[in-house]
Design a protein around this nucleic acid. Structure first.
Lengths: 195, 195
DNA sequence: TACAGTAGAGAACGAACGTTCTCCGCGCAA
DNA sequence: TTGCGCGGAGAACGTTCGTTCTCTACTGTA
């Protein structure tokens, strides 16, 4: 038998793929079992219920998102570039063939009304993202009010791309972000602190 | 017996409220029957299936959204004011106690993968909104590229407000829109054509 | 080899859902 | 009054789902 950590990862990964592709409620635990290759009995020994699995999947998505965002901004040297790298990251994501919008927004729309655990996980992820943007905005020497504006652009790009089925919203949002940055930031871009 | 049009309206209105509050899949046809006060037999004589009812609800939402947007921009005399009125309209909406995000985005996340009729209805609504914004942008004398940027701000404000549970995203998006308009539009605002 | 413990496969169970069907009562023509 | 067609209420049906249970095979130990 495979060890607990590996089994957990298989289940979460399989559930993540299926939930994202088809919607959470449209995926039965049987499908998770088949895709993960882990028996139902084992799944229910790892997760007390489907709800608990859903929350674990959201946490997994958060980790994937965070690391993707971090690696996308690696080559950027200024705060301004790091901010714009967010939209390049979105652009690459939107072009993936199985892109179907932000899993957190989807989960919130589908389950937010009936599961406060889902609401909490989604809210937490969005809060973390907003804090990330706020840090970059401060590093760029722009007023704090710019941060939520940029975050809103990123959110809007995700839903627009998801519904339209095309990726251009990323570039459009990026262009808007550049304009907002141009207006908000004093003439020469500030160097990143401590890196 | 009530006439067909009235029965249809009752069913659509009831389904709209329930679907929006709880999510589509979480609402059974029994609940629609109870809330609408129309028998199941009658409902199935008006709509061939739940899917068909869902599409009718989305069309109803589109009509409500369009008329709300129209009345919100009534007092505006310039194209710029009409654009900003979109965000004031969102602000008022976000403050409603049962606000739970954009029903189209929610429906798309929940059912888009399994129902192309839903995808079509959602896409149609967003396309109409983008054309509305594009018309206002043209009236304002701004370059066409501004329109999708403003639409993305509106979309992002909706999801941000829905997830955070607070209304301030409307004002933040409005401020960003003002900045973008300031940059894009030549000095003096243009008068609306024909009104 | 005999045995204990564990895990996998999937059958089983109870609930909920979309949809259909049955039964009953009512209004109306002859 | 008698028959008839229509609509309402909700029972019934078949399916699906989350969750649990049963049975069997296997592993490691004495």
């Amino acid at each position: 038998m495979i060890d607990e950590k590996t089994a957990r990862e298989s289940v979460v990964r399989a559930a993540d793929e299926l939930f994202y592709a088809r919607g959470v409620q449209a995926v039965g635990m049987d499908a998770v079992r088949t895709t993960a290759g882990v028996s139902l009995k084992r799944i229910y020994s790892l997760f007390a219920s489907k709800d608990e699995l859903i929350v674990a999947v959201l946490h997994h998505r958060t980790a994937v998102w965070d690391s993707g965002l971090a690696s996308a901004s690696e080559r950027a040297t200024t705060a301004r570039e790091r901010i714009l790298a967010i939209f390049d990251f979105l652009d690459a994501w939107f072009r993936e063939p199985d892109f179907r919008g932000c899993a957190f927004i989807n989960a919130h729309g589908e389950l937010g009304a009936s599961s406060s655990a889902v609401t909490d996980a989604v809210r937490e992820q969005k809060r973390t993202f907003q804090e990330y943007v706020a840090r970059l905005v401060a590093d760029a020497g722009a007023p704090p009010a710019l941060a939520p504006q940029l975050a809103i652009l990123a959110e809007g790009a995700q839903t627009t791309a998801a519904i339209s089925g095309t990726p251009e919203a990323a570039q459009q949002a990026r262009a808007a972000a550049e304009t907002l940055l141009d207006v908000a930031v004093p003439a020469q871009p500030t160097e990143l602190v401590g890196s």
